[in-house]
Amino acid sequence: MNKRNKTAQAFLNIYLALSTLLFIIPFVIIISTSLTNESVVMRYGYSPIIREFSADAYKYVFKNGQNIVQAYGVTAFFAFGGTLLDNVIMALCGYSISREKFTYKKWIVYPLIFTMIFHGGLAPTYLIYTKVFGLKDNILVYFVAGMVSAYTIFIYRAFFKQVPVSLSESAELDGASEMQIFAKIMLPLSLPTFATYSFMGLMTRWNSFETTLYYISDKKLYTLQYLLQLILKEAEFIKQSMQLVPGSVQAAEIPMETVKFAMCVVAAGPMVAIFPFFQRYFSKGVMVGAVKG
């Protein structure tokens, strides 16, 4: 249609190209500020332009980065580990409730639907997690909180239902057990779905700060996002994490404003740079989630 109309195309492209600045400039401001001389920032404010280059902030961050390294470790451990574990058990469950032979499946399906409708809420969940399971200041809370979504299980079920029955039947004739059918045939077949939901889970876990906010007070168990919000909200936290005495001469010398943003770049940068490359997985997940079937 008007795809051949050159003026219309030019206007459309100029408009869209300009609108993308709205999504790029915010990131540029953060990176530029972290690379600008502290006194220039104090004078001209945060800016997308680097008026006077300085890597001082990064020197401070890398010299005193134990907190960030530790938070990277915790975050990577539970984000990758939790997502893998989560998706394996959800795929297992989704596979079994997809099978006709499983005549007791309503005992699984109805409780799962119930979890989609009603939840205990923050306080009861907090009390049960901490008092009954002892998850306060326990790294296992990162695995437990936000695991198992009934919705995703049903998407796995829908996927396994599409797989021709003849495939599992012939394997059964060859003497394969249900577990073998799942591990050797079904799981490899479901790899695209598995990858999609693993990436979505990984992103959600990587970006979450809530679990730390509710359950963790031990500094060694902070996640990256939680550490970042502390840095943003509490100037004192930077001084503390640099292991300096607040009010001392050294503490006063820290380029506070630029260090804040340098920490932000170091802590958030790598993943933000990686995730968009897996965009197609997310798009697929959004589509399945919106229009099932």
């Binding site: 007791y104 695991m147 198992v148």
Partner: peptide, 27 residues
């Protein structure tokens, strides 16, 4: 016939009972 499937659902059911249903009683 159902046993292998029940075993496969065990991890999810364990999770749902402990970490989703128990908080409901906490209400």
């Amino acid at each position: 016939q159902n046993l292998p499937f029940l075993i496969m659902c065990l991890p999810v059911m364990f999770y749902v009972i402990c970490f989703k249903f128990l908080p409901l009683f906490g209400m």
